[in-house]
């Protein structure tokens, strides 16, 4: 229990630091990462902490600015997916069986769709803007969590206060807002976290495949250019491909820590074991 709490705290602190860096960082920089300021492939130095890319642009600036792109899509997708999942899953848990059955078949269908290929398809044809990417990823990742939340609501029926309110003649909306919400709300943390994780990795993969938005840099696009411009063949990968990858690892780990900590706290059998 204490270790889980610690993990959750570490994750939360890391996430806050990353978010602050992403929001405030770009203002503190002296460059926007597009100006050619140094020799191509310049190694790190005192003013250019991560050296420069093939066009002599500051890589540290790109890393800081890229955080906005990566964290931004994570936030957007997680918000959208969690909202859809909560509404669909919550109402499916309260709806009559036949209606819930239809909804769950739709969920099955979405789960059976080939995720990454569809995302690539959308990016290739609809254009890789942030909005499109976020919408497509959200449209794909809500289904699993919706199932989870429905299961949570169904389990909550055994708690009785939902039953009692229904016996009083409450409508499905009333039940969802007043009675299912305390059950659903804690589930939303792991759902949010998981959606954010998926979004970051999927989006970075997309960027790596060359389908990122060229106008807004992200960690994924950095790795893409590093790979395309031959950084892997010289020592430049050390300051070009490694840092954005590590940034992704750090962010996703922080999210995972928060997720695991809440999941462990949610499991009643684990709690009782304390």
């Amino acid at each position: 229990m204490r270790a889980g709490l610690l993990a959750g705290r570490i994750g939360a602190v890391l996430l806050t630091a990353l978010a602050v860096g992403a929001v405030a960082g770009p203002w503190l920089l002296s460059t926007d990462g597009r100006e050619r300021l140094a020799a191509p492939y310049a190694p790190p130095s005192a003013d250019r902490w991560l050296g420069a890319d093939d066009l002599g642009r500051d890589l540290f600036a790109q890393l800081v600015i890229g955080a906005r792109g990566s964290l931004g899509i994570a936030l957007l997708v997680a918000l959208a997916a969690t909202t859809i999942a909560a509404l669909v899953g919550g109402l499916a848990g309260l709806a009559p069986p036949w209606a819930a059955g239809i909804v769950m078949r739709v969920v099955d269908l979405v789960l059976a769709l080939p995720f990454l290929p569809l995302l690539i398809l959308a990016a290739a044809f609809l254009g890789p803007t942030l909005g499109v990417r976020a919408a497509v990823v959200a449209a794909l990742v809500w289904a699993g969590p919706a199932r989870l939340i429905r299961a949570g609501v169904l389990a909550a029926w055994s708690r009785g206060h939902l039953q009692a309110a229904r016996a009083m003649g409450a409508s499905a909306w009333y039940l969802l807002l007043r009675h299912a919400s305390p059950v659903v709300a804690p589930l939303l943390v792991p759902v949010f976290v998981r959606a954010a994780m998926t979004a970051i990795v999927l989006d970075a993969s997309l960027a790596f495949l060359g389908l990122g938005d060229p106008t807004s840099p992200s960690w994924g696009t950095m790795i893409h250019w590093a790979s395309v411009r031959g950084a892997m063949l010289t020592d430049a990968w050390l300051w070009w491909a490694l840092p954005p990858g590590l940034a992704i690892v750090l962010t996703v780990t922080a999210l995972a820590l928060v997720g695991v900590a809440t999941e462990d706290r949610l499991n009643p059998t684990l709690r009782q074991a304390r």
Binding site: M197, V201, A204, S205, F208, L209, I223, S227, M232, W237, A241, G245, I248, V249, L250, T251, V252, T253, A256
Partner: peptide
Amino acid sequence: LLDAAPAFWVGM
């Protein structure tokens, strides 16, 4: 930590 690393990056 391992799980957090994107596949393409690990591949590279």
